[in-house]
Deep mutational scan, measured.
Amino acid sequence: VGDQVLEIVPSNEEQIKNLLQLEAQEHLQLDFWKSPTTPGETAHVRVPFVNVQAVKVFLESQGIAYSIMIED
């Protein structure tokens, strides 16, 4: 199991704000291929294997929908 690319769908401005804060966490080494800008629009982010669980827990705790787009 390696890195994953998640497709994330924020449903409101609050969730977009939370994702932008997540993007700013440099220690997570997230690679946003497509940043969140509009509710209902997908964002794509590559998550290093060591941080996959932490990111998924965060998304679930914020009620942000996501799916695994690419499993490496």
Rank of each mutant, 00 (worst) to 15 (best):
residue 36 P to N: 02
residue 49 F to Q: 08
residue 57 V to I: 13
residue 12 N to Q: 02
residue 22 L to I: 05
residue 56 K to H: 05
residue 28 L to G: 04
residue 72 D to H: 13
residue 11 S to L: 12
residue 66 Y to Q: 00
residue 40 G to I: 02
residue 10 P to M: 04
residue 38 T to K: 11
residue 17 K to R: 14
residue 22 L to E: 02
residue 48 P to Y: 04
residue 47 V to A: 02
residue 27 H to F: 09
residue 40 G to D: 04
residue 12 N to M: 02
residue 41 E to R: 06
residue 62 Q to P: 00
residue 23 E to G: 13
residue 49 F to S: 10
residue 22 L to T: 02
residue 4 Q to N: 04
residue 14 E to D: 09
residue 55 V to H: 00
residue 35 S to W: 13
residue 26 E to I: 12
residue 46 R to W: 08
residue 32 F to C: 03
residue 2 G to P: 09
residue 66 Y to E: 00
residue 14 E to Y: 09
residue 41 E to A: 10
residue 60 E to F: 04
residue 63 G to R: 05
residue 34 K to W: 07
residue 45 V to I: 10
residue 45 V to G: 02
residue 63 G to S: 06
residue 17 K to W: 12
residue 20 L to T: 05
residue 50 V to E: 11
residue 27 H to Q: 09
residue 65 A to E: 09
residue 33 W to N: 05
residue 39 P to G: 04
residue 18 N to G: 11
residue 44 H to Q: 12
residue 61 S to K: 12
residue 10 P to N: 01
residue 37 T to G: 06
residue 6 L to Y: 06
residue 17 K to F: 11
residue 21 Q to S: 12
residue 26 E to T: 13
residue 64 I to A: 01
residue 36 P to D: 02
residue 34 K to V: 08
residue 11 S to V: 13
residue 54 A to H: 09
residue 45 V to A: 05
residue 2 G to S: 07
residue 64 I to P: 00
residue 5 V to Q: 05
residue 24 A to R: 12
residue 34 K to S: 06
residue 4 Q to H: 09
residue 21 Q to W: 15
residue 50 V to A: 14
residue 44 H to M: 15
residue 23 E to A: 15
residue 37 T to S: 11
residue 49 F to R: 06
residue 2 G to R: 05
residue 31 D to K: 15
residue 20 L to D: 03
residue 60 E to N: 07
residue 38 T to W: 07
residue 46 R to M: 05
residue 42 T to R: 11
residue 70 I to D: 11
residue 14 E to W: 10
residue 39 P to H: 03
residue 6 L to G: 00
residue 8 I to A: 02
residue 27 H to G: 11
residue 3 D to T: 12
residue 35 S to Y: 13
residue 27 H to C: 08
residue 4 Q to R: 07
residue 22 L to A: 03
residue 7 E to C: 15
residue 35 S to K: 14
residue 7 E to A: 15
residue 72 D to S: 13
residue 21 Q to I: 12
residue 46 R to D: 02
residue 50 V to S: 11
residue 59 L to W: 01
residue 19 L to A: 01
residue 48 P to H: 04
residue 51 N to F: 14
residue 65 A to T: 12
residue 27 H to M: 07
residue 20 L to G: 05
residue 35 S to H: 13
residue 48 P to G: 04
residue 6 L to N: 01
residue 27 H to W: 14
residue 71 E to Y: 12
residue 7 E to F: 10
